[in-house]
Design a protein around this nucleic acid. Structure first.
Length: 592
RNA sequence: CGCGGGGUAGAGCAGUGGCAGCUCGUCAGGCUCAUAACCUGAAGGCCGUUGGUUCGAAUCCAACCCCCGCAACCA
């Protein structure tokens, strides 16, 4: 038995000596034009939090940022539709999103918006550096213009007859009938969806991002970096490169947004490809300022050892594997140019070192609802709030992780949600905790009996920390949740095989030993579920009487910063003779 | 021939040349501390189709069929 303990002590010492890692987590920015829906949860907003909570528990330094995208045509038009000012819609939606995130126990180091002065400053800075380095150039073109509402029209706001199949309501980007991809100019008898009038083609001028020029560097970077990416993300991104990148428009004829900081361009704004993705950097800069250490963001953006993860989904993938890296590569030329370095410093910037590129982009596929993808734009799907009214947030967190569309699209099914709750949370994890604690109460008067850790229990525990941790680090969240359930199954089987209800009558010492071991397994479950189901973990802490334990995630949630870094992703023993609190049912069965 | 992913038990998936497997669900029996688990057994498959390579193919090759995403304002 001594050997077993020394093995545990060794494991603990070793894990503490592992060097602290730095992790930057960027999460896709939802449009401030409505509530968070189930697609957001399945896409990225649960996985990012599990990932960050895990790394904080390990004692790593994590910076997780995101915010509400407060610009763009959809917001403008949605506000018009509602008859309110865009600012009012943004304010309202941002607040709703923040509330939903809070209910789901999502902790961001900084969740901001793109409507801040800081963001504007950083975006314009990047725009100007790219321009000075020759990656942005102006070019004239003709676009549809609605004279009645006095606006240039984005592709999907122009409709007309499809030249391919003759359908009358084809959109400027695609015909929904025959699936043909179109340009607005292709449409026969075009009309504006804003006024039903016929738009005219009008000349305008825009800046273009010269992706062609960046292609060689980008191609090299993606070949080197994408080895550990999800297969579909890697192949998809490489496919884009293989096809050949084209220069793309990065400004728009609008007043709503961040103005182009060039003389004579005051009526135009910077488009989403530059504007929104820059939020990852500007939110980090804002965070540093908020915590009173204006240069602290450089720790995450300039230390080459800091790994950058972007949690996104679906069609956002190329923005994060192609366009954003391209902009970062181009921008980093600032650091080898004396003039630009002096002229274009970011707030708090002190180090003349390149910005970090993405390390991994664990992008998810789409969650389908009744066979269609959920989307804010099309109004398909369901918002997260209505789910939160019915079910507890830990179930929702666990479900959307366990059934996440990591490699394939997936249909959302109510039955899956109920099965996940009843078969996995209730019958597996909840059952083990409940049977152990009620047995301790009824047979041992709530006092943990004397015992020593069985070899198989010890092995299973250290294996669980190892396996689940590795899966999370590799962004394999479905596998991580499976491994958690496997561990819980082992615990149930252990209890069963040891049959303490039988040994209670024949061999009280053996019975006590089984319960001692089972309590250690309950405690291990409590630690293992921390990244997944933080509220349930706290509920178990209360039952075990462990309320005062230090936890970086609770620290961050309550104070806004993490000050203590130590490895909490490891087994610790609960001593014998400790008295437990009254146990409660952790997960309620859902009756259909 | 636009790019990419996929097609294996009712559902979800693993399986890169060697007897088709895992999880969940279904059915029967055992056990029972538990909102119940665990054990034993059972049912359920043309591995999308066709052809080829091979002693041997879910796996390698060719052609084809079907589903999905993307194609630049979708998470």
């Amino acid at each position: 038995m001594k050997k077993i303990y020394s093995a545990i002590i060794n494991a603990v010492t070793m894990s503490n000596s592992i060097q602290q890692e730095k992790i930057f987590v960027g999460v896709s920015w939802p449009y401030a034009s409505g509530k968070i829906h189930l697609g957001h949860l399945a896409g990225q907003n649960i996985a990012c939090d599990v990932f960050s909570r895990y790394h904080r528990l390990k004692g790593n330094k994590v910076l997780m940022v995101s915010g509400s995208d407060s610009h763009g045509t959809p917001i403008l038009f949605k506000a018009e539709e509602l008859g309110i000012e865009p600012e009012q819609l943004i304010q309202q939606s941002h607040q709703e999103i923040v509330n939903t995130f809070k209910q789901l126990s999502l902790i961001y180091d900084n969740y901001t918006t793109t409507a801040t002065e800081n963001h504007k400053e950083v975006v314009q800075n990047i725009f100007l550096v790219l321009k000075e380095k020759g990656y942005l150039y102006p070019q004239k073109s003709k676009q549809y213009f609605d004279e009645k509402v006095n606006k240039f029209l984005p592709d999907r706001y122009v409709r007309g007859t499809c030249p391919n199949c003759g359908a009358v309501n084809a959109r400027g980007d695609e015909c929904p009938e025959c699936g043909k991809f179109l340009k607005p100019e292709d449409l026969i008898d075009p009309f504006s969806t804003l006024s039903d009038t016929t738009p005219i083609l009008k000349e305008t001028e825009h800046f273009y991002l010269d992706l062609k020029k960046l292609q060689p560097q980008l191609s090299k970077w993606i070949d080197e970096t994408s080895v550990n990416w999800r297969k579909w993300v890697r192949e998809f991104s490489k496919g884009w490169i293989r096809e050949g990148l084209e220069p793309r428009e990065v400004t728009r004829d609008m007043k709503f947004g961040i103005p182009v900081p060039v003389e004579g361009w005051e009526d135009k704004v910077i488009y989403v490809w530059i504007e929104a993705v820059v939020g990852y950097l500007s939110a980090a800069i804002e965070w540093a300022d908020k915590i009173g250490k204006p240069s602290e963001w450089e720790e995450y953006w300039k230390d080459p050892k800091c790994k950058h993860y972007y949690f996104i989904a679906g069609g956002n993938t190329p923005f994060h594997t192609i366009i954003w890296p391209a902009e970062l590569l181009a921008y980093s030329e600032k650091y080898s140019d004396d003039t630009l370095w002096e002229k274009y410093k970011f707030p708090g910037e002190t180090k003349r070192e390149k910005l970090n590129l993405p390390y991994n982009v664990p992008s998810n596929k789409m969650l389908l609802y009744k066979g269609k993808k959920m989307s804010k734009g099309d109004g398909v799907g369901m918002d997260a709030d209505s789910l939160l009214e019915k079910y507890n947030s830990d179930l929702i967190r666990f479900f959307f992780l366990r059934y996440a569309p990591e490699n394939h699209d997936r249909e959302f099914e109510w039955k899956d949600l109920i099965d996940c709750n009843n078969n996995e949370l209730v019958a597996n994890i909840g059952n083990f905790i409940n049977r152990t604690l009620t047995f301790t109460q009824s047979k041992f008067n709530s006092v943990i009996p004397e015992g020593v850790l069985d070899k198989e229990v010890e092995e299973s525990i250290s294996n669980a920390f190892e396996t689940i941790g590795t899966h999370i680090e590799k962004c394999e969240f479905v596998k991580a949740s499976e491994a958690l359930l496997q561990f819980s199954s082992f615990a149930n089987k252990y209890f069963n095989d040891k049959a303490p209800w039988a040994s209670y009558k024949e061999d009280l010492k053996d019975c006590g030993n089984t319960i001692y071991n089972s309590i250690q397994l309950v405690n291990t479950l409590r630690i293992l579920i921390k990244p997944f189901m933080p509220k349930s973990s706290i509920a178990i802490s209360n039952m075990l009487g462990l309320e005062e334990e230090s936890d970086p995630n609770i620290e961050l949630d309550s104070t806004g910063v993490v000050n203590t870094y130590e490895n909490n992703w490891e087994f610790n023993v609960i001593e014998s003779n400790k008295t437990l609190n009254q146990s409660k049912i952790l997960f309620e069965k859902i009756l259909e």
